[in-house]
Computed example of a mutant assay.
Amino acid sequence: MMANLQDLKKFDLNLLVIFECVYLHRSVSKAAEALFLTPSAISQSIQRLRNQLNDPLFLREGKGITPTTVADNLHIYLEDNLQQLEQTIRVVQGAPQRKNFIIYCSTFMGFEFLSPLAEKFCRQLGYELIHYDMAVAPNSAEDLLTYRKADLIIGNTPVINHSVICTPFMVAKPTLVCSKDHPRIGDSATLEDLQKEKFARITGIEEGLRQYQVKSSEAFPEREVVFQSDSPITVMSAVGQSELLGIIGERGYERFNEVFNLKRVNTQMPLPTLDFYLMYNRFALQSSAFKLLLENINQRLATLV
């Protein structure tokens, strides 16, 4: 069926692009940032589309906006068609498709899940994996995914956003460790023993990690922290070469206890677990290569659980 070009000529197709961006972000300001436009320009465009479709499209709900039924139906039709149009333009212009995936996670998560599959994955598909440490990321996970600065994130703070898929990934169980040569702490210690010691602590800018530290402090309020680092490797190294104690993940201990001269300290002190989430922009699922990347990561996770 041939498109009615005369009808299309009367319609500003840019309005559909702006609509889709607002729909996915549920925010005029975030859509403006993503499209490098002003919020005023976005609002004016949405108003023009409202007039043409005779529907409000978005309604105020608390601090955000919610789509109408017409907006939901319009999104369903646009989701695949805009992607196909973008691919068509790339082919016509001869522009090469992006051949890398940008992944944010902690250094240890990268070590566990990305390093084993990087060479195999890249050799099979010709893609490059680019890893950044989430512990020192300048933006939140939500901003990184919403503005397509990251393809996938394994982090401690779940993202609640219509354009982002967020699923539980794994639960890190904590363990208390010290140097094998510690002069006072043996294989077990009482709370009274621990209150006399000094600690190293893993830090980070993620809200989920900050909340975890609050829970840890509530579980062990008398702990005296004298060294902090956003690198688990640095904390393990510091503990193994000093009289400091530290709380690290069980898997980190199992993998690195011999390397860093660590031993587990058994105690009755209850320690909170740390949750990790797998997050990615839902548009990424339109890539078969990205789906394969997810499968590889989940297969790796299955071997570790």
Rank of each mutant, 00 (worst) to 15 (best):
D187Y: 10
I42N: 04
E224R: 11
Q52S: 13
E33L: 12
R255K: 08
K99E: 00
K10R: 15
R201F: 02
Q6W: 10
V136S: 12
T66A: 10
A141P: 08
V214I: 15
K173D: 07
E207T: 15
Y104C: 05
C21Q: 14
K63W: 09
H162V: 06
D275K: 15
S217G: 04
K215V: 01
G204Q: 02
Q241T: 12
G208R: 08
K99N: 13
F101R: 02
A71V: 08
S287Q: 08
I247C: 01
N296Q: 14
R184K: 14
T157V: 03
D12F: 02
D55Q: 01
S29T: 11
C122G: 15
T66H: 07
Q195V: 02
L144D: 02
A71W: 05
Y277T: 02
K198S: 07
V239R: 05
G246C: 01
P67G: 00
A219F: 04
D143R: 09
S242Q: 06
H25G: 07
I103S: 00
A34S: 13
G252E: 14
P174T: 01
L245N: 05
T107V: 11
R184T: 11
N298S: 07
A118R: 14
K30Y: 12
Q228A: 15
E119H: 09
G186R: 11
